[in-house]
């Protein structure tokens, strides 16, 4: 049975989590970001969270546009600064789930310092990084995640800089939950999002996603569908793999799975514990801001 839905009565199940007045989105055909957004929407729905209490913060870039499409309190900030903004928001409202959704260039290059320090502090936020190996919004420049020898508009003869291994970076900086999936592993990705959001502390999910217009085209890899097929044939699921061993090389096997899932006191736990130890009963456990007097 098939129904062709007329435009005026579209009722996609994700609609309550999407700003339908802004769809269609800006992403290219066969881009993987939209798929990742669906995974997050499904994860939020399955977690049965009070959606009023979920905020999403993005930086700049293709993935940076996610905040604008999610029907949540959403913040589209400056390039690289989504994490510090989210940190401030989290400290003011620790009762809320704060999710940073941005790209590899935004989070790891210009925002790399914030990424490692927020992981170090074990701030209770979730960071989702869509890694498409390239700066896509600006036209396909080399990124700190571009595999060696891959071409980009600013590495026209092939990249010769070592890329970052994002799970290793997150894990060694102090993240308590680290996973990597591709946009094709949609159900496992959804599960990873659910686990990451439920985790107390700095949780990180890297999503390898196809960029058809730039990464695939500049490297003559076909389109996004071809990259999805590549993920299908070349992903190796290896839970608990040592993040040291999961570098991504150009068109090599991609190790995916959950690599880190540990318990550690969060930034606010540590702040409260220390102050309680020092000040005793004089210290009132910090539980959030003072802003909302209109209840």
């Amino acid at each position: 049975m098939i129904t062709e839905v007329a435009q005026q009565k579209q009722e996609h199940p994700m609609e309550k989590l999407l700003r339908m007045d802004r769809i269609p989105h800006i992403w290219c055909p066969t881009c993987g970001i939209g798929t990742t957004v669906t995974a997050l929407a499904v994860a939020l729905e399955q977690l049965e969270l009070d959606l009023d209490n979920v905020a999403v913060v993005s930086g700049i870039g293709c993935t940076g546009r996610v905040a604008g499409y999610m029907k949540l309190d959403s913040f589209h900030t400056t390039h690289g600064r989504a994490i510090p903004f989210a940190f401030g928001l989290h400290v003011a409202r620790p009762d809320m789930k704060v999710i940073v959704f941005s790209g590899d260039g935004d989070l790891i290059s210009i925002g790399g310092n914030h990424f490692i320090h927020t992981a170090r502090r074990n701030v209770d936020i979730t960071v989702i990084c869509v890694n498409n190996f390239i700066y896509a919004m600006t036209g396909g420049q080399v990124a700190p995640t571009t595999p060696l020898t891959a071409k980009s508009s600013t590495s026209p003869y092939g990249n010769y800089e070592h890329p970052f291994n994002l799970p290793l970076l997150a894990a060694s900086s102090g993240a308590v939950y680290v996973a990597r999936w591709t946009a094709l592993h949609i159900r496992r990705l959804t599960t990873a999002f659910k686990e990451a959001i439920s985790k107390r502390g700095f949780s990180f999910v890297e999503v390898i996603a196809p960029c058809s217009t730039l990464y695939a085209r500049l490297n003559k890899l076909g389109d996004g569908l071809d990259l999805m097929k590549f993920y299908h044939d070349n992903s190796i699921i290896k839970h608990g793999a040592d993040p040291k061993d999961i570098d991504i090389e150009y068109q090599s096997k991609i190790t995916v799975g959950k690599f880190v899932d540990i318990e550690k006191p969060t930034f606010l736990d540590c702040l409260n514990n220390r102050n309680k130890e020092v000040f005793g009963d004089k210290y009132k456990i910090y539980g959030g801001g003072n802003g909302h007097n209109r209840d």
Partner: peptide, 27 residues
Amino acid sequence: PLVGGVFVQMEDELASMGAILGAAWGG
């Protein structure tokens, strides 16, 4: 600590300014 505030020594000034904006939106 005794007036219910949170001080954070951020990683740099970019983060300081970003974090106070986030906190302001947090109320």
